[in-house]
Design a binder for these strands. Sequence first.
DNA 1: CTGAAAGCGCTTACAG
DNA 2: CTGAAAGCGCTTACAG
Lengths: 345, 345
Amino acid sequence: MAAGIDDVARRAGVSVATVSRALRGLPHVAPATRERVLAAAAALDYVADPHASRLAARRSATVGLVLPVLGQWYYARLFAGVERVLHAANYDVLPYTVPDHAARREFLAALPFRKRVDALIVVDVPFSAEAWRELAAAQVAVVSLGIRRASGVRLTIDNPGAAGLATEHLLAHGHRRIGMLSTAEDDPGHVLAPVEREAGHRTALAAWGVAHDPALVVRGDPSLAGGADAAQRLLALPNPPTAVFALSDEMAIGALKVARDAGLPVPGALSVVGFDDHDVAEYMGLTTVRQDVVVHGEMVAREVLALLGSGVATAAVDRPLHLPTRLVVRASTGPAAARVRPPVA
Amino acid sequence: MAAGIDDVARRAGVSVATVSRALRGLPHVAPATRERVLAAAAALDYVADPHASRLAARRSATVGLVLPVLGQWYYARLFAGVERVLHAANYDVLPYTVPDHAARREFLAALPFRKRVDALIVVDVPFSAEAWRELAAAQVAVVSLGIRRASGVRLTIDNPGAAGLATEHLLAHGHRRIGMLSTAEDDPGHVLAPVEREAGHRTALAAWGVAHDPALVVRGDPSLAGGADAAQRLLALPNPPTAVFALSDEMAIGALKVARDAGLPVPGALSVVGFDDHDVAEYMGLTTVRQDVVVHGEMVAREVLALLGSGVATAAVDRPLHLPTRLVVRASTGPAAARVRPPVA
DNA sequence: CTGAAAGCGCTTACAG
DNA sequence: CTGAAAGCGCTTACAG
């Protein structure tokens, strides 16, 4: 039914080899010949069968995107950025969701991407050093985002610095008891956000001569519900904080709800800083650390293309890259209140 | 490097044909033989090259997902649901983003999915009747969600009914001037949500004997900013409404911000109902019409699998399906205030 | 610049 | 139940 390469060759009066070269813009094709081939292909509405060309050319023209979950704000935006750049370069992007320990184990056991992708973008999935070695042995180029890795092309924001900005913003407003809403890792230390942001938070406190109270760091799921739950526990403390820095805007929004339900005005009784600049942050007046996630996705995609184009083995590359962030001050932060508040029930 | 099917065949002492059959669980393989093949494949860590098998079997094992945009809440959730079901059935899902008129034209001109996917899921992309014919001619199974289509497997929520619930909820609270935040289509009528929800809104008003004032229907982008902008115009009316029904939670959140900035208490001076039950809706106390988008994604994916498995030509199927929704009442709606408010600047 | 031919790694009738 | 062989629709050295 659909035209094949030999139909085009016949119509243009050339061999299939020439059709292949002409259509892909390869050199060593006479301009007039190329014209004829293009015309024939257009007339027949020809498009190459991707499976056939990928098999013959031994490249998948596909990049796998390994992430904890689709459908959450951060990963959805990232996907959009990655997809835009890769699609423009004629690559497909294939998501692999690896939400937890069990999925990670299975992913490593099956390596489902083998023979399937040319490269992998790994985001926030905490592989062990041994897992990295297995991935390296699997013959795919790898670029990572947001995770600890000894070498390779690895992108990350300046987590300690960004967290420091948030905490210093609160300190500058006079806050001295500052809570932090973080997450609990099932493989601590490999996803950079929690450890590094906690570290930046502590560093900022120390720089201002404020003693760090470990009781003020509470952990929960990186979600709205997790943030609400963690904030609940934080505000139930005998000596609750006057300000909170959350690992994500979603957790911060959970905290805002808890404050509202408890009758604590924001920022009058509680200042809140988030992280991400989620779309709704502006609409909720949430002070936050902005990361332009779509742009980050585009950048990581471009790094993949560069790596793929370089012909250099992944293992030979050592390229740590920092992505930009910045503090966005809105209405959820203000001066520390002097008055004492009762703990939340 | 990586093992091929002949390596497995050699090790198991059978032909490649038998390996192929055994590994895919096809009938007519002796149990003992199957055992040996499985063992050999496991020992060699064999995985079939997907491009080779797809070429040989003449099926892509891939479903294209055509949507206006990745990265927005609704589509990201939908993708997650679709991906989960399809991945479990060993299908890949490939996104095609078609955001506007120009992209739609290009999509139809290139039909980039040809020879690439076995089926297409089309969501909220308003193809014309002629475009549908072209798609039908392209030999792919098609399932649609949220758009007008004359036949085929087409899923949608009961938009008029759901919108009616929202408007009646406001009417029951005594509201008589009810604004609606809707969207402007570049191809009116093909995406069902705006037309059908506006119709349901009008029907509910009529059922309660309330005259419909066209000035109370304002349109904007289906986004936070678009909702804010539209709400701004609505509240600037000489005789502004006491309640607003928005086409999406995102638009509703935009309206909430406008109300807050204008010093209008919600629901004291303005009641707001959204649509979707976006993750943050609960945290903002937003009354809304809930649709379980991930589940809807799973359902549409299962319809695709059924269609693919049936062997029936897409054109021969006529299967309209309604997906469930329900009203979720929260704090953003309440009794109509009697007092007169000044218009917003 | 162009073509004939081998080959990419599988699946699938067809025989037996 | 199993195998030999053709074929899926391209790309790519290799010659010329």
